[in-house]
Design a protein around this nucleic acid. Structure first.
Lengths: 136, 136
DNA sequence: AGTTTTTCTGCAAAGGTTGTTATTTAGCAA
DNA sequence: TTGCTAAATAACAACCTTTGCAGAAAAACT
């Protein structure tokens, strides 16, 4: 995710308005490595702006995600997580406590050094299948 | 997933009963490469057994998954998918139509040959983090 | 056949996210 | 500054998927 200033410009360029709610979200997300849920961000946001709604938090997160400024991490169960780090990296999910750890691409060595015990790896490719490519 | 006969034995060994509903599910899943949702299986099952409940379909899928006979694929949105192919393979999800394709491990060449256009790859590791390993 | 224990169905409820709508507000122009 | 217009917000309802629960039904064992 880019800096608050850059995001502001990007939103304006996209014809979107700069509201206090959006500025607050930008601020809460910048450099946030906790992979928060929408609910978690909502709780923090309320402390500064008690009137903000959960709906607006979701809305802003969706906007940022569709602009490519934010990644949505979808674990099998439970709420979705959001990650302002859009650089090439992977995630390690602890089955026990649910915490999410960033994993650099030089996987093996780093995983061991971090004391992470891997039980399974899932790779999901996203894109367009042959049929859909053809029908465009 | 193993054959219907083997599953029957496995269920009996686990103290689980062999019911017509379970046999039907075994049959619908054997060799099924469509990555169906619970709902989709329910619809097909109803045609043979109109009285079967969606609850039972979920129940059986959960049982099979927890026995390791079935994989649950969790995409970000929408219902979970089930895959009786428990061999080491990956998935390709078409963002346009939602179809899921099995991807063999010799990724690159096969993807191109299949006409699949990859936009993103997500790798999710699951296991136990250092803290949880330590507290065991 | 009878008994026990599991499983089934049907329904209610939960969790997470999105749709809807009236009200408010940002951005712009006079 | 003031007013205008399109967009965003808050509040609430609804949705979708999955699970919990209770009573009825049925598999397995004697």
């Amino acid at each position: 995710m880019r800096s608050q200033t850059e995001l502001t410009d990007a939103f304006r360029d996209a014809g979107l308005k700069i509201t206090p709610q959006r500025l607050l979200m930008f601020r809460l997300l910048e450099g946030n490595a906790s992979h928060p849920t929408a609910e978690a961000l909502y709780e923090v946001a309320r402390r500064e702006m008690p009137s903000i709604s959960l709906r607006t938090v979701y809305q802003t997160l969706n906007d940022l995600a569709s602009m490519g400024e934010l990644l949505q991490i979808d674990l099998g169960s439970g709420p979705g997580r959001f990650d302002p780090n859009t650089e090439d990296h992977h995630h390690f999910i602890c089955d026990d406590c649910g915490s999410i750890h960033d994993v650099q691409v030089d996987t093996e060595a780093t995983l061991q050094a971090d004391g992470l015990k891997v039980r399974s790896v899932e790779v999901v490719f996203r894109g367009s299948c042959a049929t859909c490519v053809a029908s465009k």
